[in-house]
Design a protein around this nucleic acid. Sequence first.
DNA 1: TCAATAAAGGACATCGATATCCTTTTTATT
DNA 2: AATAAAAAGGATATCGATGTCCTTTATTGA
Lengths: 149, 149
Amino acid sequence: MTFSKSFGYALRGILYISLLKDEPRKISIDEIAEKLSVPRHFLGKIMKAVVKAGILSSTRGLQGGFFINEKTLDTPLLTIILLTEGNNYFNTCLLSMRKCNSSNPCPLHNKVEEHKDGLLQIYGQTLVSDLLQDDKADFVKSLATVEAA
Amino acid sequence: MTFSKSFGYALRGILYISLLKDEPRKISIDEIAEKLSVPRHFLGKIMKAVVKAGILSSTRGLQGGFFINEKTLDTPLLTIILLTEGNNYFNTCLLSMRKCNSSNPCPLHNKVEEHKDGLLQIYGQTLVSDLLQDDKADFVKSLATVEAA
DNA sequence: TCAATAAAGGACATCGATATCCTTTTTATT
DNA sequence: AATAAAAAGGATATCGATGTCCTTTATTGA
């Protein structure tokens, strides 16, 4: 039910850049980190991986920064999950047993299988573009880390 | 979708002890750790917490060990989850945002809400006794850590 | 009472995720 | 060419989950 912080930072960064797709400028790590209240250097590392995976593009130097490419908006959440959580996030046995699958199920396996599949469906079908919202100011606000209520 | 190793060890330990409920003897950490191929001392720490929570009982000394009590078999998985994962495992925002709930949802919140609730239902309704299986030898085997295929 | 046993408790070690900092490389502008 | 800006890369720090070890406490049986 939980994702790593890396996943949260990655998706929020991608959404922030996607939201500004119509602006001519590129977006720097400094800006993203500040607007989303996310640790600057850690975010840098994560965005590097996101670019390496082809989900976003970037250029160095003056006027450089991050920007969307032809894949960005059509990227399923699942791709980002697999990038940040590792390839067997959905294969991991809930009971920390190494060998557990449908033919060799742990006591919990079948009980959760259906919902696991449901989530996989959602993550596979939901694209970055599906998460964007019209009101930019509101959306940026909703992406920023805020102290718990 | 993932639980800590602590949860896996706790549940498997509880199941192992529950399985042997008809034997007159009490079960030691050494036996559980060996039969389940789980780290001995770490398991000890976890079982201590399980006993403290009242899910199991134990006595020290010669002939001592762990044994089930009136609550054990009727304990819902959710109780064990909350014990090992902390009380807000199901409240954690998937995007690592501090403030996120149904009235203030993050971009992913509503997409997964339904399945989250479904899993909560399962974990709340499934009892330790529901996971026990008739064939003891087979069941113990299915509880033991095995190298990935 | 004494010895053996087993959980309880606490100190410490390790490891991976998270986070920070500094250097290198690339790019645009002057 | 020189400078400034920004990502890329790499070294190190921190923290919590995991794991090990040793001591203390409780219990049984001789």
